[in-house]
Design a protein around this nucleic acid. Structure first.
Lengths: 200, 200
DNA sequence: TCCTTTGATGAATGACCGACCAAATATAGG
DNA sequence: CCTATATTTGGTCGGTCATTCATCAAAGGA
């Protein structure tokens, strides 16, 4: 055996991920990325290959961590309606305070690369399908529990995907929490049945 | 007087607009832009200044033509509900066949530039506010005509903005018409009151 | 007719980027 | 301790980018 790697690959990948997430692919130079990763160019190329490969690795890591957790949040609760509420609440928090203030790497990549890079578009499409499936599952459970409006059908999963993509776009303009809240509440109001009135 | 300009400035601007629209700012090189404009670099710089200024000119032209027409489509009909339906129908058509297959320049710019360019973000925010105002006007007229669900309030304008931004993102992955239709129909279903059944 | 003014041309410029090495260096096993 | 082997370092290379400039073409006015 020879020398062991001096940096943690996943830590470096996370740093690259954040850079890509914030600035996009074209606007992130290898120099900037290496500084963010605290790794010299030679080491970066040895570990990740060329820039494009680093990006796909970052995108893969994003789907495996950030978006996997999002999907889990939707599908975890027994109540479909609660899953949707939990997910949107957390999304808004992250858009105001956390990582999601830069939107969503998937969304950003779709806008930046569409048509120009089939492989990347494929990865992005896969995640979008996952998200849609999670929404669909939550909706069917909600429907079974009578939590849904009569009009809400399977097409509502497509609507939810679009709403979330839209929120990801809006998040990049750093809107106030109330604006995001308005979007989420209006979406849920159109989808969910009125909860039994509990006003005293 | 000296020599007259050999090219039409607005035609050239339209060509640049399409290039930016399709590929974004960073991925559009001056070389590509000049080829699309059928204008030599020197002439382009004389007429439009540096690349960034060309982009803001293109963005301005976009708001004055494409998005002004969109706003008109929302606000023109006497019926607010009809305005929304007209707008979404036309949007879907343009996303499947027309210009909007590249999404929306405003949306793309927000994703590409957010935080990095306050002036551009300002222009984009202005258009988003216009769009929101158009939706709000259509919604109040619809409410007055009894075309709205009871739950739908002013927050629904924010929802509509988000939905449209989301559709703009999805459009870049060239989805089938049915998918976009599902989004629009689900959005309207959550907003509008059931029309009086007219089945024979 | 000639001259001034303005636009068009396209090669040239300097900066920077992604990609890639080769030498120096540090570590693990023998 | 020594040697094999991997990583790190810092630089180089070709190419592309936005931008400019010296030069040419055309359109009036004198």
């Amino acid at each position: 055996m020879g020398r062991t790697r001096q940096f943690d690959v996943d830590d470096a990948l996370d740093a690259a991920l954040r850079t890509f997430w914030e600035n996009g692919f074209e606007a992130s130079s290898m120099q900037t990325l290496c500084e963010a990763m605290r790794v010299q160019p030679g080491s970066a190329y040895a570990a990740f290959g060329p820039k494009r490969d680093l990006f796909t690795a970052a995108l893969r890591r994003y789907t495996e961590t950030v978006s996997a957790e999002a999907v889990r949040r939707i599908t975890a609760p027994a109540s479909g309606a609660q899953g949707l509420r939990d997910y949107l609440d957390h999304l808004i928090d992250a858009m105001v305070d956390g990582d999601r203030r830069w939107g969503c790497l998937i969304t950003n990549s779709l806008v930046e690369f569409a048509e120009r890079d089939p492989e990347l578009t494929g990865m992005v499409g896969l995640h979008l399908a996952n998200l849609r499936a999670a929404f669909e599952s939550a909706l069917t459970r909600a429907a079974a529990a009578g939590e849904l409006r009569p009009g809400a059908g399977p097409g509502s999963a497509d609507l939810l995907v679009a709403v979330v993509q839209g929120m990801n776009v809006l998040a990049r303009s750093r809107p106030g929490r109330d604006r995001l809240r308005a979007v989420a509440d209006a979406a849920l109001a159109g989808l969910l049945a009125e909860p039994p009135a509990s006003t005293p």
